[in-house]
């Protein structure tokens, strides 16, 4: 149903109206950010029974809302499946898409999207039953694999088996929910998706302990938020919200100590928190934009640990997602 609605919206938008390129103003006038999120992936985007959303991507959208409105709750989350997400962004249904979406060249170009950064470095893996006694993805010749439609996963899978000279039987489902259910029912030997997704989905299986994640990571999956082409200001805002959170972590600014940090003499901290310069205004936001983000939501390390790291059931190590000076890849350009 949703799909039809958004396709229709796309058709109407494309046919009837000129593209508006003032997303920041539209969002401010509306009084809320429309954020396209994952509705079923614990750790990235998931509403609870009360409708309260949690997840790394969800907190990213909250941070954008905090920067604009000084209120992290001024976000309307729209749950999107993998295959409908781009249509929803293109049609203007959502202002930003933060839904564990891999940055690829075709999505960045012919789909008309701009990726604003990478908030989770990931790669594709396989989940199998322990009873199969498979220790490597290279032993999966002839296996049936359940996969979700409209993902990079679907393409990598075909590539990997071809490159390894193995045959496979893919069974493709529209949502992760159906794919995981079918895997759990024995329809497939393996389930494949981003490794982060595997950790998350494994917790949903009837007996999580009976399944293992194989060691091979078969692809690069840089997951990040995306906006529409054609609005540079909005692109900058969303891009710098992520950089601000990474810089805050690097400078040791946390949700707890952000108030004290306002008194810091460190020029980098002063610029980031807006006690010196007018960097927030240059973005179309306020001076204290980073104080709002970190104070209301947290720095990058904090939202990582809370949603997918040690503070979550998934307990994923920082790994590639550590700061650049701690052996990871998270690196933000300076505010100046």
């Amino acid at each position: 149903m949703y799909k039809i609605a958004s396709l229709f919206a796309l058709a109407v938008l494309l046919a009837a109206q000129g593209a508006s390129a003032q997303t920041l103003k539209t969002v401010k006038d509306r009084g809320a950010l429309n954020c396209g999120a994952n509705g079923t992936l614990a750790g990235f985007g998931l509403p609870d029974a009360q409708g309260a959303w949690t997840g790394l991507d969800v907190d990213f959208c909250r941070a954008v809302a905090a920067a604009i409105f000084d209120d992290p709750n001024k976000v309307k989350f729209v749950a999107l499946t993998a295959k409908d997400r781009f249509t929803a962004l293109q049609s203007g249904e959502v202002d930003v898409l933060a839904r564990n979406t891999t940055w690829t060249s075709s999505r960045d170009t012919s789909l008309g999207l701009n990726f604003t950064g990478v908030n989770y470095y990931d790669g594709q893996g396989f989940l199998v039953r322990k009873s199969l006694k498979v220790n490597s993805a290279l032993e999966l010749n002839g296996a049936s694999v359940c996969v979700q439609q409209g993902t990079t996963t679907e393409l990598n899978l075909a590539d990997y088996f071809r490159a390894s000279k193995m045959t496979l039987k893919t069974v493709t489902f529209a949502t992760a929910n159906e794919a995981v259910k079918a895997y759990d029912a024995g329809r497939c030997d393996a389930y494949t998706t981003d490794a982060s997704g595997l950790y998350s989905e494994r917790l949903r299986l009837a007996s999580a302990g009976d399944h293992i994640i194989l060691p091979e990571i078969i692809s690069k999956e840089p997951l990040g938020p995306a906006v529409r082409h054609g609005d540079d200001q909005w692109f900058d805002v969303v891009k710098w919200v992520h950089f601000a959170m990474v810089n805050a972590e690097e400078l040791g600014i946390t949700q707890k100590n952000v108030g004290e940090m306002l008194k810091s003499d460190n020029p980098e901290i002063k610029r980031l928190l807006g006690t010196e310069g007018a960097f927030g205004e240059q973005l179309g936001l306020t001076k204290d934009w980073v104080v709002r983000i970190v104070g209301k939501v947290g720095n990058y390390g904090e939202i990582f640990e809370k949603n997918v790291g040690q503070g979550s059931p998934m307990k994923i190590a920082r790994g590639l997602n550590g700061l650049w000076n701690k052996g990871g890849l998270q690196y933000a350009p300076p505010v100046r």
């Binding site: 058709a11 938008l13 494309l14 046919a15 109206q17 000129g18 593209a19 293109q90 170009t109 012919s110 789909l111 008309g112 679907e154 393409l155 899978l157 075909a158 590539d159 496979l168 039987k169 893919t170 069974v171 493709t172 529409r228 082409h229 054609g230």
Partner: peptide
């Protein structure tokens, strides 16, 4: 629609028809 697609830099036309699919079908 064509103008707006072009402005949003979204590919249009039927050229995709002959591109490699890259995914499997059961």
């Amino acid at each position: 629609a064509i103008e707006n697609l072009a402005r949003a830099n979204i590919a249009s036309g039927f050229g995709f028809w002959n591109n490699t699919a890259g995914f499997d079908i059961s």
